[in-house]
């Protein structure tokens, strides 16, 4: 966050956050409009229970509203909220009984992503079978790799922010993403090879 380029988005975000902390309802509403859907989308990847995720996001916003005066300034509102939601979900799911025995709760939580293979399918005219095999390869990634990829490529967050959201260090994020891409790439292109020969 420190090294991040100051762009208009961040400036707006900082102003918005200040206004929100002063208790301006319109700022709070803007925060909700801007981040509520994104947080649902993130939360549901941990836990495919819509009501649970809705409750978690609901509680998060109510909590930050009630504690607004005590909140510190944040570099990126988006990653602040993502991080807070992630913590809450991990904590809440820890209270659910079927998770009680787990030592490391976050290891128990899944992270579901579905890659955008349809687009690729259309542009390349690859057989459906190949793509199904590919989705299986993608599913073999670890949860953490999937989460890192989601944050990096879908949410477009920089590495530092991903590191703080996932509570791991900067280097680990880079490694996670690198290894994920490497393994996808190797399996992907092995799969694609026959169809390339066929089409060319």
């Amino acid at each position: 966050m420190v090294n991040q380029k100051v762009n208009s988005n961040n400036v707006d975000d900082a102003l918005l956050w200040q206004a929100f902390k002063r208790g301006e309802r319109s700022a709070f509403e803007t925060l909700l409009q801007q981040y509520y859907p994104m947080l649902l989308n993130y939360g549901v990847r941990f836990y495919r229970d819509k009501e649970f995720v809705k409750d978690s996001v609901h509680d998060l916003f109510v909590e930050i509203w009630n504690r607004r005066e005590h909140l510190s300034d944040v570099g990126s509102v988006k990653s602040y909220l993502l991080q807070a939601l992630r913590k809450n979900i991990i904590r809440e799911s820890g209270r659910l009984k079927w998770f009680r025995e787990a030592d490391e709760i976050s290891e128990k939580l899944n992270f579901d992503v579905e890659f955008n293979i349809e687009t690729h399918f259309i542009s390349r005219e690859i057989e459906t079978e190949t793509l199904q095999k590919l989705q299986m390869e993608l599913d073999k990634l670890t949860k953490r790799q999937r989460e890192a990829i989601f944050l990096r490529f879908t949410q477009d967050l920089p590495y530092e922010e991903i590191a703080s959201i996932m509570a791991i260090n900067y280097r680990s994020v880079i490694n996670l993403i690198h290894e994920a891409i490497k393994s996808i790439r190797q399996n992907w292109f092995l799969l694609l090879l026959p169809s390339f020969l066929y089409f060319s």
Binding site: F115, N116, H120, S123, F153, I181, I184, W188
Partner: peptide
């Protein structure tokens, strides 16, 4: 191709 495929679906 990989970049396009990596766009995780919303």
């Amino acid at each position: 191709s990989l970049v396009i495929a990596l766009k995780v679906k919303n």
